[in-house]
Design a protein around this nucleic acid. Sequence first.
DNA 1: CCATTGTTTGAATTCCGACTCAAAGAAACC
DNA 2: GGTTTCTTTGAGTCGGAATTCAAACAATGG
Lengths: 205, 205
Amino acid sequence: MRKAGRPRNQTARRQALVSAAGRAIAERGLEALRIKDIADAAGVSQGSVLYYYPELNDLVLEVHRGAVEGYLASRQRAYEEAPADDPAARLRALLHSGLPTMTDDPAHGLLYELHRRAGRSPGHAELMASLFAREVALYTTALEVGAASGGFTLAASAQDLAHGLVALEDGYGLHIVSRNAALHPDRAQELILAHARAVTGRADL
Amino acid sequence: MRKAGRPRNQTARRQALVSAAGRAIAERGLEALRIKDIADAAGVSQGSVLYYYPELNDLVLEVHRGAVEGYLASRQRAYEEAPADDPAARLRALLHSGLPTMTDDPAHGLLYELHRRAGRSPGHAELMASLFAREVALYTTALEVGAASGGFTLAASAQDLAHGLVALEDGYGLHIVSRNAALHPDRAQELILAHARAVTGRADL
DNA sequence: CCATTGTTTGAATTCCGACTCAAAGAAACC
DNA sequence: GGTTTCTTTGAGTCGGAATTCAAACAATGG
């Protein structure tokens, strides 16, 4: 059996472990997460995992941080890739990036899984709150721009409406990842869209 | 140490165990649930717990069932205790019973805790879906009655609006039990209320 | 009251996974 | 080349929790 010694740098290894842990969590779930799973997913021994993360919670927190940043970046990208001169299209893009498409959407699944820790771990709670706040900020901008130059007629403050949109996504998303057979992702998507149309006054969303 | 033998009936014992398990789960969380915790909470030995529930998951599922039924009953009660001739008051009562008041509201806390299993356990998924459907049904009725005789002007079908209200509750509730410091329960409550006002056209909700 | 049957207990056992650690390999530095 | 230092490994240890089980006990029925 190979025994590698002193490879490149630590950060790369850590990154690999975080990524492996993310896959393991998405696959087996937080409750069933075992050091061995992470080690296997990363292709290293159990000892190595402990070498870099003597405290497993630190690793899980890192996974959470990565998932939040990645998800946020992907939504931001979706927003910015839509034409800047078409606020409705931009909002539509945002709305489209906020719901799990299938019952086992990997990105959303991982996030909901990690959010489970928020109730008992301040670190995770903070990450979850930060994600919420930044999503709200994204929507707020999108709505304000739309009101300024996209013909949106906001039914309330952009802030309040943004909160509502994110909460809706989270609520519907929760049921989708929880395998609610009566609530198809398409239906949820359409319900959110209808709501967005109503509060912006743009029937063409 | 006492050694009781052949007491009354089984159903009573099972009920006591379910209740004890519920308390244990609410207190320590699902991940940290130990047979000993349940036994202690029920004031019996570990052996007794296994005697009635050789499969621990069955017990947890029973806890979930009880939590769902109890929660639903309490919302139904809230609805029915409001004056039948005042649809707005009834809707208000419903809206008021759907959000955790504090970050550690016991009823909501237990439900969100149990919902964590839905992603991987069909039984829990079914319970969660059933809760969602029945909450939607409650709101649908409240909205339809309001439209028929309470001066509500519904912005969409009662069904769709009901879905939205429940999803909003679930979304905001998720963040509240997850200890989002930036989202105070009162604020969430007010946001939901504002939304309800908008979609019913009743500014006095 | 004796036998039977359903219940309860807690000590013993088993199981599983986290954690330790000595040995060994690989780069870096001299 | 030798030495030092960082990494990696996996077998072994440890501990906590699930599970088993024989013994004790209480109600019920005869």
